[in-house]
Nucleic acid binder design. Structure first.
Lengths: 257, 257
DNA sequence: CGGGTCGTTGACTCGAATCAATATAGGTGG
DNA sequence: CCACCTATATTGATTCGAGTCAACGACCCG
């Protein structure tokens, strides 16, 4: 998952070059795929690409201006933090997903943070809202994306509420694998990364996702390794040795010893 | 929460009567409040009111036709059920909320069920989608509602992941209280139901919401009673004796003995 | 090569689940 | 209207999974 630098660019530059969007890796799968060339040109005019380092806040309370962004590369985490120090990661957004909330000043206590270095195609909130108002296709597409996020959140509710630590970790890895495999196929860089997975999160962040402690996550990795389901290569790389074994955990279906 | 029978009615009847919507208790706060009288008239034409008894499935896999409904009275629960018998309630919808998913054939494994007897203002999926396509205001309002559901789901993730059994039950009761107080104020039936709460769910359903066992829910009720925070009147009625005490649990902020 | 962060492993604790009796509400039929 | 009956709810005893506290080990940075 090496990020090929594309550099910062502005709408003006993009137009000069005859359509930066045309070369955008998520043009075909992001929100922007829902609109025709004319509207895409308008999008290009109001958007600009920015790169943020791991850890930087992308949106949420404390940000100066409301923005709306499409992720070009990297992973963002959505974090709910209440009163005391408790944090819960309530969502992960990958390439082609969006971050931000049009028409909604208070984005519900959730902050978005770069989990890895990220490239964003970013719009000012009001400019993007203006475009939404004049392009029903775009608004329709956004509705679809929000519904997808809602499904994801509800799947996650089931995971947090009903799965054991072992099932949580296995489900998390499968989710990550499916999602990053899609991204990899598009980039079509390495031919056989098939069973290789680079983790975008630390153990402690995985724990924040799954409502576990980092020690428990570590133990579950150890269990999965002991069963020959995975191998680790350093801290952030995983090789899935037994895909079927991993899938066996998905629906809490496997009760066999 | 006695449901005043409004009877079944069809669009045709409604028009004869000069606008059934005008007398609808959720007209001012439902999705339909986003649109002008002309569009409201069209909504009236394609919608009809139905009443379903407690326990009846409203939507989800297994329903013959895709529908979209606005809840007029009663409470619906959204249930995620996977493989084995595990069930997780992933959302509750109250009067003025919606049930159903426009433009989305596969409604993400979630089924909606009447938690109490419900009155619905129901539309065929395609008819409602047609109206959405021609009324941007309505689509905008729908987007807002879906974003609200998303916030709710994410708050719930925090609750499931980071709160103790006691905090879960207290938070659940406060959520219910806030929501049902709003409904009650609108109906303005009883003057002082201020601290009275009728539970729309059984202990076992509450447990399904909170990822607890019903025994644990029962124990937490007992604890809250012992602390003088609540009283129970029969199985389904609660009187909140110490509102501040209950609120103390909301943000996991109270660690005082 | 050294230092520090991050991850792993171990021993023990604790909160909620589980298993098992009761007890009560609330509907039904006499 | 009352007595019964069954669902639902409560309470108790015990188990178990994950949390907590603590020490050690390994990776990655300069």
């Amino acid at each position: 998952m090496t990020v090929e630098p594309r550099g910062e660019w502005t709408a003006a530059q993009a137009l000069e070059k005859g359509g930066r969007c045309a070369r955008c890796p998520v043009r075909a799968i992001g929100l922007c795929c829902a609109i025709g060339p004319a509207a895409a040109c308008e999008l290009e005019r109001i958007g600009h690409c920015i790169r943020l380092p791991e850890g930087r806040q992308i949106s949420g309370p404390g940000e100066k201006s409301r923005t709306f962004s499409i992720i070009v590369s990297g992973v963002a985490k959505l974090v709910a933090a209440h009163g005391n120090g408790e944090r819960q990661i309530v969502g992960l957004q990958f390439a082609s997903d969006f971050v931000g909330r049009p028409f909604d000043p208070a984005s519900g206590n959730v902050i978005a943070e770069a989990a890895t270095d990220v490239e964003l195609c970013s719009f000012s909130g009001s400019a993007f809202e203006g475009l939404l108002a004049t392009h029903p296709d775009l608004e329709r597409a956004l509705l679809g994306r929000v519904l997808k996020d809602l499904d994801m959140a509800r799947d996650w509710l089931f995971l947090l509420g009903r799965k054991t630590a072992e099932e949580k970790v296995a489900t998390f890895l499968m989710m990550l694998y499916e999602r990053m495999r899609l991204d990899a196929l598009r980039d079509s860089t390495e031919g056989d990364l098939s069973r290789h997975l680079r983790l975008p999160l630390s153990r402690s962040e995985i724990a924040e996702c799954l409502s576990l402690r980092l020690e428990t996550v570590s133990r579950q990795f150890a269990t999965l390794k002991a069963r020959g389901i995975l191998e680790t290569r350093g801290r952030r790389n995983i090789i899935i040795r037994d895909m079927a074994g991993l899938q066996g955990y998905l629906d809490s279906a496997s009760k066999a010893a």
